[in-house]
């Protein structure tokens, strides 16, 4: 039996649930010589504003226990250069391209969505309303229920592409943000972005990142991310793209059983740039071993039995 690995993210069908996470895979083309991009379920490219951005000065990352902090500051080439310089090659490589967009204002999100809707080879838009490392825009929307609702509904009005707001974990009740996104018409939600965190060099008493604070990713955050995906699954019907410290097929399966329809992988691909086929094959092996015909049948199949009522209602 060859299990069916395809998953649906709203109107979009992915050939498998494994997506390269935005901010961790450049524009995808950097990896085209090493990785067959067409084998991935999707490639979420680095977050784009309308204009190019320089990002923060170094140091931009620091390793922490089982994880890393980053404060890159969304260095990027802007949407126009992306369309002219990167998108043609992504098309040629038959990548399923998810474009992550960032705005300082609601109007910027709308404008980016308009521009990308006219570009050939964009499969979906991921709305970055959750970057913890920039002062303006983004997370201002992602930390407000009305802000989340407003940006999703405004973008939905101008595009027929699937719209996937990427949620921040830096809120008290992430499920309420998933609900706001769903009510605004989001085709799916992705979560989690990184956890706001910091690290200090005690010898110099200086912060280890130039931005002082940064976003924590990697295996350290996985159990929290799994919990948040689980809570969102209980709260919304729309597809969920889960992420946070996935480094193996087992980790990906954990997210799917918690309620994710697809997953994204970031930090682990820094360590192993050839991880993609290992993840996809590993998920296939699991499905065969458990006699599951379709990976989508796995989503949300966590067996919580009697425990869940006291837990989720508390």
């Amino acid at each position: 039996m060859t299990p069916d690995l395809s998953v649906r993210i709203g109107p979009l069908t992915l050939k498998n649930p494994v997506i390269a996470a935005s901010g961790c895979f450049g524009y995808g083309v950097e990896y085209a010589g090493m990785v067959d991009l067409s084998l991935l379920g999707g490639v979420a490219v680095k977050g784009l504003f309308l204009a190019p951005r320089e990002g923060h000065p170094p140091e931009r990352i620091v390793e922490t226990p089982a994880g890393m902090l980053n404060a890159i500051g969304l260095q990027g080439i802007g949407v126009h250069r992306f369309i002219s310089e990167k998108l043609p090659e992504l098309r040629e490589r038959r990548a399923t391209v998810i474009v992550n967009i960032c705005g300082s204002t609601l109007e910027e999100y709308v404008e980016l969505a308009r521009i990308l809707s006219d570009a050939e080879g964009v499969a979906a838009l991921e709305l970055n309303i959750s970057c913890p490392n920039i002062k303006e825009g983004g997370i201002t929307f992602g930390c407000s229920l009305t802000g989340t609702y407003d940006v999703v509904s405004a973008v939905k009005k101008v595009t027929s592409l699937p719209v996937i707001p990427k949620l921040t974990p830096n809120v008290t009740d992430v499920a309420s943000f998933a609900r706001a996104a769903a009510e605004a018409g989001a085709d799916a939600v992705s979560l989690v972005n990184t956890f706001l965190a910091m690290a200090i060099d005690v010898e110099t008493r200086r912060p280890k990142l130039s931005n002082i604070v940064g976003g924590l990713s990697g295996p350290a955050i996985r159990p929290i991310a799994v919990r948040m995906v689980y809570q969102c699954r209980r709260s919304v019907k729309i597809p969920i793209v889960g992420m946070g410290g996935i480094a193996s097929a087992r980790d990906a399966l954990e997210f799917m059983i918690a309620g994710a329809d697809a997953v994204q992988v970031g930090t682990a691909s820094f360590v192993d740039p050839f991880i993609w086929t290992k993840l996809i094959d590993g998920i296939g092996d699991y499905l065969r071993r458990h006699d599951v015909a379709r990976v989508r049948d796995l989503t949300g199949t966590i067996d919580t039995a009697a425990r869940e009522k006291e837990w989720i209602s508390s």
Partner: peptide
């Protein structure tokens, strides 16, 4: 010599002005 996350252009951490 810069702090590098991936060495492959994916993470944008090792930048030089």
């Amino acid at each position: 010599e810069r702090v590098m996350g991936c060495g492959l252009g994916g993470c944008y951490s090792c930048v030089v002005p």
